[in-house]
Amino acid sequence: MIPFDFQYYRPTTIQEVINTFNDLDSQGLSPIYYGGGTEIITMARKESLSTKAVIDIKALPETKVLEEVKGELVFGAGLSLSEIIESNLFTLFSKVLRPIADHTVRNKLTLGGNICGRLPYREAILPLLVADGKVVLVGPEGRREVDINTVFDKRLLLKKGEFLLQVKVNKSVISSPYFNRRKEKQTLVDYPITNIVALKEGGKIKMAFSGVAPLPFRSIEMESFINNKELSSEERITKAIELMPLPFKKDHLASDDYRRALLEKSMKEMLANLEGVIV
């Protein structure tokens, strides 16, 4: 039971969305965009989020796009994780989305919600970061299509009133070797304590992480060490971890030491998997 009231809007065109946002914002209603709603509803019940209006973007046809267009795979932000997984357009994407929440929740939880929500995992972004994908953002100032790595720094850097419409990746990534290892405290239906997603392109490994630190990230510095084959495999891993842009997280799910141990183990498995290196 959500104890407070909010208004609900479901526009069907981008212009309607923008107008609705501007209108509600000018009334001081602090509108928020609503995808699957799974996070908004749970946080609203606990009153850890408050809003006076939600704008459901799932009726925008653009948010339901799931296809290949001119060599790019396009995923609408209003797609449920299940829809993306089942399409299997991008195997690594499906693989990373599959352990998020549970099967029933994934029927509701949307791509946009996972990336733009407040929960600090945002695992759906990881394959997009390593695939150097793009995001299509729409807001009062118009529409922009930008490289994801320029607008994602632990969170998607959205301007006021802006929302995620679509993500895109170059189709070529689907044939790139990849690696994904997600570890949980114990139960598989849980947030990750470490999640590493890696893609190998042009002989170079690209890596993105969730769960290991307070927020998800991709780090070019870490990649420069992991790809430095002059070092021993052990060193590549150790140095890469030393350069983590955020400290290891410690919380009720795991200590920082355990996260580090699992991450080291995952990275060894990654090298074994992508380079045939046995560490």
Binding site: M1, I41, T42, S82, A101, T104, V105, N107, K108
Partner: peptide, 27 residues
């Protein structure tokens, strides 16, 4: 649980299971 964790509220929407505690009726 009304938190999307237990599944006791599961119903089908267009044939797919969803948790009705994580769904607004207006949706």
């Amino acid at each position: 649980c009304e938190n999307g964790d237990c599944g006791a509220c599961t119903v089908l929407i267009d044939g797919k299971p969803i948790k009705s505690c994580l769904t607004l009726a207006v949706e």
